[in-house]
Design a protein around this nucleic acid. Structure first.
Lengths: 113, 113
DNA sequence: TTGACGTCTCGCGATATTACGATACATTAA
DNA sequence: TTAATGTATCGTAATATCGCGAGACGTCAA
C-alpha cells in the first residue's frame, strides 16, 4: 500500500559494520579541527612541527601529538632534517577526501545547487 | 641545501582551525562503524530503524541513537509511517564522501596504483 | 663540553562518547 | 479499553579523547 518504496535492490549493499572498523578509526582521527587544518596545510606544502603548531596556535607538543595520530593512520610521514622534522602527506586519497570536506563545510567551498 | 622543498606557495592555504570546527563535528559523527554502515545502506535505499539495527546487529534503541546523531548533523531525515519510522539521506555530499571512504578502506574499493 | 633549540613522550585531570537497561511514547490490532 | 509493536529517551557506568605541564631526547653551535 503506501507507494513502492525501496528500489528493487538486487542484493544487499556490500559491506558490513565490521568492514568499516578501520575506516571509522581513520575518519575519527581526521575528525578534529586542528588535524583537518594540518592536513589542509600539508596538502599545499611541507611543514615542520613548529610551523604547523604556530599556524594552529597550539603548543608544539600538542601539535606533535596530533601529527603522531595522523601518522599512525598512514596519512602522513615525517622526515628529520637537522633538529627540525618535516611532515608531508603520504596518503593519495587525502586530497580527494579533503575536497569533499572543503566543498561541504568551508565558507568558500564548492556550491551544490 | 637539500633540494628546493616547498613550492612557491603564493599565499597561505585558505582556512583556519576555526573554520574546521563544524566539519570536524560532522566528520566525527560519521566516524563510527555502525554509522558508516547505516549511511551506506541509506545511500542504497530507505530503511526503518529496525531494519538498520538488525543489519548492524545492535538493539533497536542503540540504532535509534545513532540515527539521531546522523540526523542532527543534517545527514539524514526521518519520516513516520504507521508505527515505523523510515530514514533516508538528506545530504547530497554524502554519496561523494562515501565513495572516497569506500574507495580507500573497503575490500573491493578502488585501487590506487 | 655546555647550552640552546626543536621535537617527542609521559602522566594527569577534565570532558566526551559509547552501549546498556529501563522506561516512556506513538501507533495499530483485538 | 487493552495488548502488542516499533521507536525514542533517560540515567548510568565503562571507556576514550583532549590539552596540558614536566621532562626526556636528538641535533647543532660555541
Amino acid at each position: 500500500m503506501t507507494r513502492n518504496r525501496n528500489p528493487p535492490q538486487a542484493t544487499k549493499p556490500f559491506g558490513s559494520v565490521r568492514d568499516f572498523a578501520k575506516a571509522a578509526e581513520c575518519l575519527k582521527t581526521l575528525a578534529h579541527p586542528v588535524r583537518l587544518r594540518i592536513v589542509q596545510m600539508l596538502l599545499h606544502g611541507r611543514y615542520t612541527v613548529g610551523e604547523l603548531a604556530a599556524d594552529c596556535e597550539i603548543p608544539d607538543n600538542v601539535g606533535s601529538e596530533h601529527l603522531r595520530l595522523l601518522q599512525r593512520c598512514g596519512f602522513l610521514v615525517s622526515e628529520r632534517e637537522g633538529r627540525k622534522v618535516y611532515y608531508q602527506v603520504a596518503e593519495p586519497h587525502l586530497q580527494q577526501l579533503m575536497n569533499c570536506i572543503e566543498g561541504r563545510f568551508l565558507p568558500g567551498g564548492a556550491k551544490h545547487r
